[in-house]
């Protein structure tokens, strides 16, 4: 990840140099120093609201919880040890599985859609892209509640199916792992579609013609040309979906039952309900470490530098 940030900075500096004013600023006297002034607001913001809380969480995770939930500054690794109890490992595993399936389904649904979007005549694309983005205008919580209305026993699906006489008893759709998956896929699909669309849209159509010309039927063209060429979009999309899906607590809270507690809910509970900040912090740090390591390995295997995330 540091490698990605580093090369990102190099690129940013290179593109800043193209502006005459800034290039003078950057090459004159105390050289690059002044250009970094431009980074100051970002550094300040991230420092105050990301780095400081992160350090606090790290410190908290190493302390002992007092009888009333207060922090006792005695160093211990007990909070971390506790996480490796079967119950919590199971929650973590379940979270990974749900995040994996969310990502996989988003990819399976999002890729064809993004491909379609990239083929549609330009004048219609704006409208369709808009439709992808429109849901963001409504609060995510409200959109998730909408699924409750759709899935519950007296909900839209059951009512319609019963009215049609296809079922006699309402199906229990809500508070199941399936419901969680549906809600997650619904919520994260745009994050998969947008980078995929950007990637596919950039694909040079003549490459597909060349592949066909050289004897490749459509599915081989897809595997040998389209997919490898749009891999940056796939990587970006899976990262943008997998990570938030792993930490998601709203959807399992509203659509999942007690049996579908995920790591996001666990952390939320430790902080808000159980008032065990120490254990919540340890769980957070473990989750973060896991994501960071996994992400680096994943990104490195695709030579991914992060620019794809912003299209």
């Amino acid at each position: 990840m540091t490698a990605g940030v580093g090369s990102g900075l190099t690129r940013a500096r290179a593109s800043l140099r193209r502006l005459p004013f800034l290039s003078r600023l950057m090459t004159r006297g105390s050289e690059n120093g002044r250009a970094y002034l431009l980074l100051a607001p970002t550094v300040f913001w991230l420092g105050l609201f990301l780095l400081v809380p992160l350090v606090l969480v790290a410190i908290t995770s190493l302390t002992v919880r007092g009888a009333y939930g207060e922090t006792v500054y005695r160093w211990t690794l007990a909070n971390y040890a506790r996480f490796f109890e079967p119950l919590y490992v199971q929650i973590l595993w379940r979270s990974l599985v749900v995040a994996f399936w969310t990502t996989a389904i988003c990819l399976a649904v999002g890729y064809p859609f993004a491909y379609f979007l990239a083929q549609v005549p330009r004048r219609h694309r704006g409208t369709l892209l808009m439709l992808v983005i429109v849901p963001f205008w409504t609060n995510f919580l409200i959109r998730t509640y909408a699924w409750v209305v759709i899935l519950r026993t007296t909900g839209v699906i059951n009512t319609v199916l019963q009215a049609l006489g296809l079922i006699s008893e309402p199906l229990s759709l809500l508070y199941t792992p399936g419901a969680v998956l549906v809600g997650m896929v619904y919520g994260f699909l745009p994050f998969m579609v947008l980078p995929l669309y950007t990637s596919i849209e950039k694909l040079d159509h003549s490459l597909l013609e060349a592949s066909s010309d050289l004897g490749a039927p459509p599915w081989r063209t897809f595997l040998r040309v389209t997919l490898p060429m749009t891999m940056p979009g796939v990587v970006a999309g899976t990262i943008l979906v997998f990570i938030p899906a792993l930490g998601m607590f709203v959807v399992p809270d509203l659509l999942g039952g007690a049996r579908t507690m995920l790591i996001g809910n666990l952390i939320q509970n430790q902080f808000l309900t159980a008032r065990n900040w120490q254990f919540g912090s340890a769980a957070s740090i473990i989750l973060m470490a896991l994501v960071t390591v996994g992400l680096m390995a994943y990104a490195r295997s695709f030579g991914f530098e992060g620019e794809e995330l912003v299209g």
């Binding site: 003549s206 490459l207 013609e209 066909s212 010309d213 050289l214 004897g215 039927p217 040309v225 490898p228």
Partner: peptide, 20 residues
């Protein structure tokens, strides 16, 4: 017959080489 079933090959104007 689709292009991939025709015994002809094309040299494209901008070559269309596979960059990957």
């Amino acid at each position: 017959l689709p292009p991939y079933r025709r015994d002809v090959n094309t040299v494209f104007q901008h070559y269309a080489l596979f960059p990957h």
